[in-house]
């Protein structure tokens, strides 16, 4: 596996205000009826988009041509809650988004994103709101997410971001695809398995 180091992502952004945006909204369940992830991006926010666009065409940020080339997504709190479906970050990543900046993320969504190399960083609520305002006012605003410096810059403004150190290290050193790491030193895994009483069939009785 080639190792990809991720340090800094820059580009234009797409604002998506609102708390508790769940993965059923990000990718409704009927689009999970497939054995592959291909083409998922076409159905990103399908229901939300249909409703917003019925009221006013192009009013959902993901239907708005001004954000077509965005590579950064700005969200509020508890983004990606609900179902563990990896289809949600897959669809986002396949749409060309490479980083998500928000107040907070659900843990499963965050973990799934790391495994895909989709960077999620958190900021203060005021920062998320400020970024959403700036990008809404001027979609051409260039945003740069720097996970090494732990800063996000937008135009001429700079804000702090946070990311758990394990995820940060994984992006920086390219170990975000964890499988290889887990297969290293496999004898240690087998040793743990043989120590577990339920794996060895409680043959040795209780060992605590």
């Amino acid at each position: 596996m080639p190792v990809e180091h991720i340090r800094r992502i820059s580009g234009t952004a797409l604002p998506l205000p609102g708390d508790n945006i769940d993965t059923d909204r990000i990718i409704p369940a009927r689009y999970l009826r497939s054995v592959s992830f291909e083409g998922l991006e076409q159905h990103l926010f399908a229901d939300d988009r249909a409703q917003a666009d019925a009221a006013q065409p192009g009013s959902h940020p993901f239907s708005n041509a001004r954000y077509d080339n965005a590579s950064i997504l700005i969200v509020n709190a508890n983004f990606g809650c609900g179902s563990s479906r990896e289809h949600a970050p897959q669809a986002i990543r396949r749409r060309g988004i490479r980083a998500v900046v928000g107040e907070s993320f659900s843990e499963i969504f965050f973990g799934n994103s790391v495994a895909l190399g989709l960077v999620c960083v958190t900021t203060a609520p005021e920062t998320a709101d400020a970024l959403i305002q700036m990008v809404t006012a001027d979609p051409a605003t260039t945003i740069a997410v720097d996970i090494e410096a732990l800063k996000v810059t937008a135009g001429d403004r700079t804000f702090d971001i946070r990311i758990p150190s394990a995820a940060r290290d994984a992006f920086l050193d390219g170990s975000w695809d964890a499988t290889g790491l887990l297969l290293d030193r496999y004898e240690q895994v087998e040793a743990v398995a043989t120590r577990l009483p339920y794996v060895t069939g409680f043959a040795q009785g209780a060992s605590g």
Partner: peptide
């Protein structure tokens, strides 16, 4: 734990997870 598909791959391949 609930996990995503990449982690399903990890568990299939290694019977392990990397967790915080």
């Amino acid at each position: 734990f609930g996990i995503g598909t990449s982690q399903v791959r990890d568990v299939l391949a290694s019977q392990c997870l990397a967790l915080d």
